[in-house]
Amino acid sequence: MRVVALGCDKSGYPALLRWGEEGSLPFDEVKIFSLPCLGLVTEEVIFRILENSDALLLAGCPLDSCHNQKGSQGVYLKVKRVNSLLQEADIPKKVAIAFVTSGKVGEIEKVSEELLGREK
């Protein structure tokens, strides 16, 4: 499974990197990118990324303490919408979001299991 991972540079990206460095990635290929805030991610961006990958993993600040107040909330709604559209169209691709603080990889591991369809 080819996965693109996007993390905000406040919380998600450092956590994604630690997850990558710890080495036991459950996917065939992961590309990790950072951006100032997850609030920048639009539905269009998600679909464009999914054209070249099987799944998209987003990692950002916790919902109630986002660095930009509503960045995580905004993208959470979009992820829900995109997933329901993918399901409706019967496209076997997925988008998942992990709310983390930097350095905490547990939530990313949980979400990556979800992407693999092995929900804990």
Partner: peptide, 10 residues
């Protein structure tokens, strides 16, 4: 502006 991009994405 903090460049969070919420305005652009919505």
């Amino acid at each position: 502006c903090h460049l969070c991009g919420l305005c652009a994405s919505f």
